[in-house]
Amino acid sequence: MAVKGLVAAIVQFLTQQLEDGDITADSRESLEVAIQCLESAYNVQASDAPPDFDLQDTYKSFVNYNKPAHIQPATAEAKAEAERLKNEGNMLVKADKYQEALNNYTKAIQLDGHNAVYYCNRAAVYTKMGNHQQAIKDCHSALAIDPTYSKAYGRLGLAYTSLQKYKDAKECYQKALEMEPDNESYKYNMTLMEEKLTQQGVCNMVLSGNTTSEGLPEMDLTSLLSNPTLMNMARQMLSDPAMQSMMTNLMSGNVDQGRRMDALIEAGQQLAQQMHNANPDLIESLRRQMGGNPNDPDPSQQN
């Protein structure tokens, strides 16, 4: 019933957009099709929406739920003291005194709760302390104050990375790069997340049993071939004279079946060893059948 009520509320909202919204003829046609599809799929009508339920108001409440509760702006004296506490907190972070730094940032927020920097800096400390969920909450608070704060997106990406939520992390780094296109740290972390997602995809295919008739996992070759780390490893391995000689023997018709199998096994062992030497993190991740638990550096320093 809850799902049908929600769908009915969506239908109701879209119907109101048809009546009140300033939309083009093409958009109107698309909305009409969407409404018909929802009504047919869930067997609902706009009139089935829960009474006194406004979908748009609910959405606004959700978007704003992380905004600080402080209403009154801070006085000049409070802002000055908050800034002093923040600066002191930065020094404490450099001295690895994370709990003391956390206390300073919290006091700064209490004095001036509309400063996004204080939330972002506290998020960085929460990440260093391993409290990634709280770091995510503080990053969202910072972005609610300043949606263009690239550093908050970067630290949000770091928190998601620590929780192995690589897709969410990648989206955060993409946002950060939109605001700072030349930031090398964000570029590096974006590439790293793409690699993690590739590794995770391979592991998921193995776990799901999604393999070919030969027992090998079905892989998205396009994604693999576009992965810079994997391609670099392949180039390094193929440039090795020993590997070249072994591949020549494998493809040679002069080698009997038994010797070819031995050569294939040896090639596989050497391939695994060279992959491990080139990227031990990749091998360990595959061995664990899930992506690694990275301890990536913070993409930026304290403000």
Rank of each mutant, 00 (worst) to 15 (best):
N293G: 00
G215P: 00
Q236G: 10
Q164S: 14
E83F: 00
N279L: 01
M190N: 11
A95Y: 02
L225T: 14
L143K: 10
S208N: 09
L224R: 05
V3G: 04
M233A: 11
Q236T: 12
Q273E: 10
N295C: 07
F62Q: 08
N227I: 05
R287K: 09
D96R: 11
L271S: 11
F53Q: 06
Q273I: 02
M1I: 03
K86V: 06
L271H: 07
E32V: 11
A263I: 11
N103S: 14
D256Y: 13
D138L: 01
N254F: 09
M190H: 13
N293E: 02
N293I: 03
N227M: 03
V93E: 02
L250K: 05
Q110S: 13
E29L: 10
I145A: 03
S208F: 00
L192F: 14
C37P: 00
A108K: 06
D182L: 09
P280S: 08
K67W: 01
D182G: 10
Q199R: 10
Y160I: 04
T24S: 15
V117K: 02
R122D: 01
L14K: 11
M129S: 15
A69D: 12
S213G: 02
Y173Q: 07
M251W: 11
D26Y: 06
S141H: 04
K97I: 02
E100K: 12
Q45D: 10
G89M: 04
Q72T: 15
A82N: 05
A76E: 14
T148L: 00
N254E: 15
E83C: 00
K4S: 10
L156T: 06
Q45L: 10
R288A: 15
I265K: 08
A242R: 09
F13R: 15
P299N: 11
Q274C: 04
A82P: 03
Q164M: 07
I265S: 06
N131Q: 14
D240W: 01
N66S: 12
I71A: 14
L85E: 06
L38W: 04
E88S: 13
A123Y: 02
K107Q: 14
Q274E: 07
T198C: 03
L14R: 08
A74E: 10
V33D: 10
Y118D: 05
E171L: 14
A263P: 00
Q274A: 14
Y188I: 12
K137A: 12
E100V: 05
N103T: 13
T248K: 15
M1D: 06
H276D: 09
F13H: 14
V63T: 10
L225G: 05
G215K: 00
G201I: 02
K196H: 07
T212F: 00
V202D: 04
Q110P: 00
L282H: 08
G215W: 00
Q72A: 15
M237L: 11
D168I: 12
T212P: 00
T127F: 00
A49Y: 01
L156R: 14
E284S: 15
A80H: 12
A169D: 07
G268I: 04
P73A: 13
D112P: 01
